[in-house]
């Protein structure tokens, strides 16, 4: 009993929270771009937050359910519809068998996440389900989903009786996420090792000007367009480590922000790092949209991420209670 892809999208891949422990071999972590939303999708359907989900870009794939399933869509709003009827984001939805899930319009954000109760049945590569496109490994055959692909669903629950013959049914709870209500343009950064090598004027400029995300932005990195920034000295750097969220200054004075599929090492000046708590909203910025940076101190950055994770944990506790209640109500 499967989930079938009846129309492929532009880039839809299986992702989890990343593959760690292999960067010393040049194998970058990959994983969901917006990890908050990937975890939230799982939590809404009662899964472990680190279960594999499907990361969708617009135009996204269309899916056919061969069995009833409990699903949730989070992150970007691509105006999802089941058999032609709109369904909301951030809310669990029971789907009957023989239903078609489509994504109609790009309303907000850049990446949506589809989680299915019980998870997706597939093999891990190096302890992670994340698709590694360069290595052509992990996820679904190491590639993006294509028409006629079939994914086995692992759920041991039979959701059929809960639908009472309906095509789908919204479960009566929704996650409220403050992170989504904030516009994605204000991004906090920490100083990078080579920040001091920027001229004083360029330091000011980085924090005052509005940058635009260029179309050359993808899962590897975001290329920004702005007034070029200048370095005090042109000292050569040898390759050293970089991180998700690292702001690199390219020789032409433009900034690149490294994202989920970034290289493991780099030799460009690291002028800053986007705080972990803002990776999620950064992942939802689209080409053509503005980005502004402001500085944050290290302690605040840590606290903000810890709060974000605690918030997820609270949602998880609430969802588990509600879901258990819902499941038992039928008996």
């Amino acid at each position: 009993m499967n989930l079938r892809i009846i129309k492929s999208g532009v880039l839809d891949t299986i992702q989890d929270l990343g593959r760690y422990g292999w960067q010393h071999l040049g194998i970058n972590p990959a994983g969901a771009m917006d990890r908050f939303s990937a975890q939230l999708a799982n939590i809404l359907v009662g899964n472990d937050p680190g279960q594999p989900v499907i990361e969708l870009h617009f135009p996204a794939a269309s899916f056919f359910f061969e069995r009833p399933a409990l699903i949730a869509i989070t992150g970007a709003d691509f105006c999802a519809a089941l058999n032609g009827e709109d369904i909301p984001v951030n809310q669990p939805v029971l789907v009957n068998k023989y239903s078609v899930l489509q994504f109609q319009r790009l309303n907000k954000g850049a990446r949506a996440y589809l989680a299915i109760e019980g998870g997706l049945e597939m093999n891990q590569w190096l302890n992670s389900y994340s698709t590694h496109l360069k290595a052509a490994a992990g996820g679904y055959s190491g590639r993006s989903l294509q028409t006629d692909d079939e994914i086995r669903l692992s759920s041991s629950l039979n959701w059929g009786p809960y639908l009472h013959g309906k095509e789908f049914c919204l479960l009566p709870w929704q996650a409220s996420t403050d992170w989504e209500k904030q516009p994605g343009v204000e991004i906090n950064i920490l100083l990078g090792k080579e920040w001091a090598r920027l001229t004083e004027a360029s330091q000011k400029q980085l924090l005052q000007q509005t940058f635009t995300l260029t179309p050359q932005s993808d899962r590897m990195g975001y290329r920004l367009q702005g007034e070029p920034l200048q370095l005090e000295s042109k000292e050569e750097m040898i390759s050293t480590a970089v991180n998700f969220g690292t702001l690199q200054l390219l020789p032409n004075g433009q900034l690149t922000i490294l994202m989920a599929d970034h290289q493991t090492t780099g030799g460009y000046p690291r002028v800053g790092h986007v705080i972990s708590a803002h990776h999620s909203k950064l992942a939802q910025v689209r080409p053509g949209e503005p980005v502004r940076f402001s500085l944050m101190d290290h302690q605040q950055a840590e606290e903000l991420f810890i709060q974000q994770q605690k918030h997820l944990q609270q949602i998880r506790n609430a969802c588990q209670l509600k879901l258990e209640h819902f499941i038992h109500a039928l008996h």
């Binding site: 920490l190 480590a241 970089v242 969220g245 690292t246 790092h273 986007v274």
Partner: peptide, 12 residues
């Protein structure tokens, strides 16, 4: 030793 963002540190 310096921070590489808020989730990593580098010893150089």
């Amino acid at each position: 030793i310096f921070p590489l963002g808020d989730s990593a540190m580098t010893v150089d």
